[in-house]
């Protein structure tokens, strides 16, 4: 086999490999599932400046409701990012890293980082905020109600 033939064969093989990969649908990764946070959520843990204060007072009655029409409401309100009812949005339904609230009476979004960990087999949401002094950082870990 001379070098020209050899080069041609290599090019044909490479072309077939490219075409083969391009046509093989099995190699496409499965689509990431939508992280639907709509529903009612209750507090399971609270930290203040990194210190767990969950048992320090009764946080159990607070409930945050993300309605499927992207409005939200509270029951038994506790300090949070926003106070009044309004609308909510995540930055990406498949990979949500930011959660935004807009109070019905407000004109600007209030945004926070959102993490969506699985703890003990259950999907939780973790929200950080500073309702008082900006130097005081709080974190609520919320669990979906009724699952």
């Amino acid at each position: 086999m001379n070098s020209t033939t050899y080069t041609k064969n290599i090019l044909v093989i490479l072309l077939l490999m490219v075409l083969g990969v391009g046509c093989d649908e099995d190699l496409n990764p499965p689509a990431e599932s939508v992280k639907d946070i709509s529903g009612s959520w209750k507090i399971v843990s609270v930290s203040r400046n990194g210190v767990d204060i969950t048992d320090a007072m009764d946080f159990s009655k607070f409930q945050l409701n993300f309605h499927s029409d992207h409005t939200y409401s509270f029951e038994n309100y506790l300090p949070f990012l926003v106070k009044d009812q309004g609308t909510w949005e995540v930055d990406d339904p498949n990979y949500p890293f930011k959660l935004s609230f807009r109070e019905a009476s407000g004109s600007a979004d209030v945004q926070t980082n959102l993490t969506y960990p699985v703890i003990a087999g259950r999907r939780k949401i973790r929200i950080s905020f500073s309702p008082g002094c900006s130097s005081n950082k709080y974190e609520y870990v919320l669990d979906r109600v009724g699952e």
């Binding site: 203040r48 300090p79 309702p131 008082g132 005081n136 709080y138």
Partner: peptide
């Protein structure tokens, strides 16, 4: 009292 600095919208111990 903790935290040492707060407003009425913090949780204070």
């Amino acid at each position: 009292a903790q935290p040492l600095t707060s407003t009425m919208n913090d949780f204070v111990t």
